[in-house]
């Protein structure tokens, strides 16, 4: 059974929800990301989403876009991120790792080479923001062959027809985008999220994570009533930016917020 499936099953049995923090790999250096991953695990992360930096992160808001830029400027490559996962796996074999990024670095790496190395390094899931299901069959086949889950975004505007299509290709969980906009945007409407999740579940029999616009434990807790997982990114990445010169403060503030959110999901 895939690690993601296992995690979601166990949580469900305990009536708990998954906490999935997002950070951009290599933001502040790869060692910094490694330290942050440890902090996130200690704070109760069930899955860590690692952003793979791209020079043109079209679907991300300013905060995460800037983190991509910092990592690109630091020369962080997809290959480096895979090596980082391998390093993390040497001490941790329970927290699932999902890579989230844009297609071009994977195109250049090569689909098969990527699938092989991702498996070897211990990656559990892959989400390619700008690769809709229609274009994803080749990569899907190769990820399936190495038992890596292929995670897809679902939007409030996703039609029933597309939900059916996504049901045929997604695995692990689906990532429901809580609002119209980019990562880190405002105006999260809990009621409409709940209504949308009902619709998603009608078509897709997978755990549903909710992200975009969740910034604190209270919101996370509200969202978790209907979601199986809560994904939190921009607010953590903002701490990484703010305390880029003070690693102790960075780890402490990321850890504190992560712990609050995690506790809210484990009540």
């Amino acid at each position: 059974m895939s690690k993601l499936k296992n995690i979601f099953q166990t949580l469900k049995q305990n009536q708990q929800k998954a906490f999935i923090p997002f950070i951009t790999a290599g933001d502040g250096g790869l060692d910094n990301t490694y330290a942050l991953m440890q902090t996130l695990v200690d704070s109760g992360a069930d899955v860590i989403e690692l952003g793979v930096a791209f020079s043109d992160p079209m679907a991300d808001g300013v905060v995460i876009a800037r983190s991509h830029q910092r990592a690109v400027e630091a020369g962080v490559s997809l290959d480096n991120v895979l090596d980082l996962v391998r390093r993390f796996r040497q001490l941790n074999n329970t927290t699932a790792i999902v890579l989230m990024g844009y297609l071009n670095p994977i195109e250049i790496f090569g689909y098969q080479a990527f699938a092989d190395k991702a498996r070897e390094c211990g990656v559990d899931g892959v989400l390619v923001v700008d690769m809709p299901a229609e274009e994803a069959h080749d990569l899907k086949r190769r990820l399936d062959a190495v038992d890596i889950d292929f995670i897809f975004l679902v939007a409030p505007t996703t039609t029933d027809k597309r939900l059916k299509l996504l049901a045929t290709i997604a695995s692990g969980f689906v990532y429901f985008v809580a609002l119209k906009g980019v990562t880190g945007a405002q105006h999260l409407n809990i009621e409409s999220v709940n209504a949308n999740l009902m619709k998603v579940r009608k078509f897709i029999d997978l755990p549903v994570g909710v992200g975009f616009g969740i910034k604190d434990a209270t919101t996370a807790q509200k969202v978790s009533k209907s979601a199986d997982a809560v994904i939190v990114g921009s607010v953590l990445v903002a701490f990484i930016e703010k305390y880029s010169r003070d690693k102790t403060k960075m780890l402490a503030s990321v850890g504190t917020l992560a712990k609050q959110i995690s506790l809210a999901l484990k009540r």
Partner: peptide
């Protein structure tokens, strides 16, 4: 082709 985020597919 069409290589965009799901959030833009409807548009």
């Amino acid at each position: 082709g069409i290589f965009i985020a799901e959030t833009l597919m409807i548009a």
